[in-house]
Design a protein around this nucleic acid. Structure first.
Length: 691
RNA sequence: GCGCCCGUAGCUCAGUUGGAUAGAGCACCGGCCUUCUAAGUCGGAAGUCGCAGGUUCGAGUCCUGCCGGGCGCGCCA
């Protein structure tokens, strides 16, 4: 695709700049050389604005520099022409026929796309090893809601992008099975419903056990609010849970297991899967924290506070944000000088171990993060949790007896991405800092908090769900609260989308069997949700509106699918009516005249424009990974689909009489279809055969 | 108080490491189905890019200050 060509252009430019102006390759002007895509094909395919950067240094007009460089570049294989634009850009025109022949060829399809990405990235020193992406991490005490869908969709897609780039990826789902939320549901069953472990087992056989717990959890929250004394029961439950070996712990373990299975089913509907479930209970039982604690104590990263409010706690000093060099001259002084204000002093210490000896949440997270990098010196045992058709889901275990003798290698990553909403930024920063304090600066750098904003509800949707929104009338959206049972359950949303898509599919395809309708509707529903979740930038609060999410029109997943199905239909018809398959089309390109691509007409530019845009997928993925911004993939795919639809309406293929024109158009569509399918795949969306 | 994020068309949002004429979707108005699926397409109307300075050949984008909104800063998780 386009990145290898970028590489080619870059290296030739660097050579020419070095030769003409005696500038070494490590100079910033060459290292930071930007490549752009000109706004119109008539202007070129790749633009280099380097003459602007050189203008000041050389005391010369950008235009003159561009002209000198363009002349100095000479011939480059795969580049048809190089032009200095009057405004100072250097524009490269690709050899259209050469590249389209290559990209549309059968050999280029499928695995070669990935192989190329892999080859490219092996050149990068960084990120050689495995990348762990942790996402989902839903408390296993109730059904998943739309907020969880945003997390899982982002995490899953991010993992797919990394794999596309040829990196090794391990997807982990962290299960907090010993936390307050699970304890609360246990309290609900025992105190509010007087249920035994066996009663709960029986109840879990009914469908949608997760929905049952959703309501129960909301009731428990209310029950606590009714009498604060009742919170003591939560504390004793929590202790029993952490201790293990009792009825409470048995019930909690059972609930967590069943709810996790519910979550896995929900996520499977979204094409989301995992490599490993990591259970907090296992971290506890295998004493990961004790090891991490020794480590932190030895290095002095945490120390016992002997006076003040935090007396008796093990604390970590919190580093103030380091001053940007030259940003604020005063900041360095302020940071270096210890404050005399005792209040301020205290805010700079974070409790890691409480005075009663129990470890805080962030402490456990530090131990977990150390394990992810293979720095803890301890490991879990592993067991198979579920065997799927394409991959086996593994789970940690602390029970050596239940462990598999030959598990794959987990952990020991060279980079770790934690997909967690932005409200946990502070804590994630602490985890990162702990690594740095321990001397693992490289690992600290490669601890990435993939943060994103929350999903709220639009006022209309909140009202539709029957919630009183008068309290938040002045806010632009209504916050989701799992505690109050407020929110849209993921499965409910998917059910509604399935129904709606099913109706539409049945209407358009009367010949479909019920099974075809169901399968197609599921693919459409999934694409609708997934696209909706990635199309916004991660830093934006989504005010979830049910009608907007249910829409199959405009900028939506189904639009992208539709624009791909159409392309496939062309080839289906070509084969049906004329027995002409894609391989025949692409081989015939070898000696087809190139006028349709290169005669300088608007039609030729439009044809090539579709091809070039489709070729940019690898560039877009690169940008998305670099900026942790998946919406660029969504926006790119949508724009590409729009471009194709415009092409589709203007340029017939089946009804085109000119043989060569027809061939080039078909080749362009084939390549577009491959790239679009790949792009949709990166977002976890399938392309139905018909829709 | 401190830290992070957001502010672009009526609404919801794009706008790449600063670069060629600020773009989409929805909603609104008007065309296009004997033609490769109208979940589509073409056209129209709609913007002091929150405000004020600054840096630059060039600022929606970078810097400073302010205004408005969100989130975080616990011996909760």
């Amino acid at each position: 695709m386009i990145l290898p060509i970028h590489h080619l252009v870059r290296s030739h430019m660097a050579e020419a700049v070095g030769r003409l102006y005696v500038i070494p390759p490590e100079d910033a002007v060459i290292v930071d050389m930007a490549l752009e895509t000109p706004p119109r094909r008539a202007l070129g395919d790749i633009a280099v604005p380097i003459a602007f950067a050189l203008a000041r240094r050389l005391r010369k007009a950008p235009r003159a520099i561009a002209q000198e460089l363009a002349a100095a570049l000479g011939r480059i294989d795969g580049i048809a022409r190089i032009e200095a634009a009057p405004n100072g850009y250097i524009n490269f025109f690709l050899d259209r026929a050469k590249w389209l022949r290559e990209w549309a060829s059968q050999e280029y399809r499928g695995f070669r796309l990935r192989a190329q990405g892999a080859a490219l990235h092996s050149r990068e020193a960084d990120g050689h090893g495995k990348v762990i992406v942790e996402h989902t991490a839903i408390n296993p005490n109730k059904a998943a809601h739309i907020g969880h869908l945003r997390n899982a969709t982002l995490g899953d897609a991010f993992g797919r992008l990394l794999r596309f780039q040829g990196r090794r990826v391990e997807i982990q789902n962290y299960i907090d099975d010993t936390g307050v939320q699970v304890a609360d549901v246990v309290v609900g069953f025992r105190e509010l419903e007087q249920k035994s472990v066996d009663d709960v087992r029986e109840l879990a056989e009914s469908p949608r056990f997760d929905y049952y717990c959703w309501d129960l959890y909301a009731r428990v929250t209310e029950w606590y609010a009714g009498d604060k004394e009742r919170l003591k029961i939560r504390v004793t439950t929590l202790h029993a849970l952490e201790h293990g070996g009792n009825d409470i712990a048995t019930m909690a373990a059972f609930i967590a297991d069943r709810i996790v299975r519910c979550h896995l089913r929900t996520m499977a509907r979204m094409n989301i899967g995992y490599d490993l479930l990591t259970w907090e209970g296992d971290i506890l039982r295998l004493h990961f924290w004790a090891h991490a604690f020794d480590f932190l104590k030895k290095t002095g990263a945490v120390y016992m506070q002997t006076e003040g409010k935090l007396k008796g706690c093990w604390v970590m000093r919190i580093e103030e944000a380091p001053a940007e060099p030259g940003a604020h001259p005063n900041t360095d002084v302020a940071a270096a000088e210890p404050s005399d204000d005792p209040e301020l002093q205290e805010t700079r210490e974070k409790v890691i171990v409480r005075s009663d000896g129990t470890v805080t949440y962030v402490g456990k997270d530090m131990a977990y993060q150390l394990w992810k990098f293979g720095l803890l010196g301890r490991d879990f045992f592993y067991r198979e949790f579920e065997r799927g058709t394409t991959r086996t889901l593994w789970s940690t275990t602390s029970d050596n007896g239940a462990a598999s003798s030959k598990p794959p290698s987990f952990g020991r990553a060279s980079m770790v991405c934690n997909v967690i909403d932005t409200r946990q930024s502070y804590l994630q920063k602490l985890v990162k800092q702990a690594l740095a304090v321990l001397g693992y600066t490289k690992e600290a750098e490669r601890s990435i908090h993939y943060s994103y904003e929350m999903v709220a509800l639009s006022h209309e949707t909140a009202r539709e769900l029957g919630y009183d929104t008068s309290e938040e009338a002045d806010k632009p959206f209504v916050e989701v609260s799992g505690r109050k049972g407020l929110g849209v359950k993921a499965d409910d949303l998917l059910d509604r989308l399935n129904d709606k898509a099913g109706t539409e599919v049945a209407r358009r395809n009367p010949e479909f069997a019920p099974d075809d309708i169901r399968r197609t509707a599921e693919a459409i529903a999934t694409a609708a949700v997934r696209y909706f979740m990635v199309k916004f930038s991660r830093g934006k609060v989504i005010a979830f509106d049910i009608d907007e999410a249910l829409s199959f029109e405009g900028e939506s997943g189904p639009y992208l699918q539709y624009a791909t199905v159409r392309a496939n239909n062309i080839f289906a018809k070509l084969k049906d009516r004329e027995g002409l398959d894609e391989a025949a089309v692409t081989t015939a390109l070898a000696d087809a005249p190139q006028d349709a691509l290169t005669d300088g007409s608007d039609d030729a530019h439009d044809l090539w424009g579709l091809v070039l845009e489709a070729a940019r997928l690898d560039e877009i993925v690169d940008q998305a990974v670099r900026t942790l911004e998946l919406s660029v993939v969504a926006k790119y795919a949508f724009a590409l689909a729009q471009q194709f639809n415009g092409f589709y309406h203007r340029f017939p293929i089946l009804a085109e009489d000119r043989k060569d024109v027809r061939l080039w158009r078909a080749a362009a569509v084939a390549f577009y279809r491959d790239q679009m399918t790949e792009a949709l795949g990166l977002m976890g969306c399938a392309v139905p055969e018909r829709m």
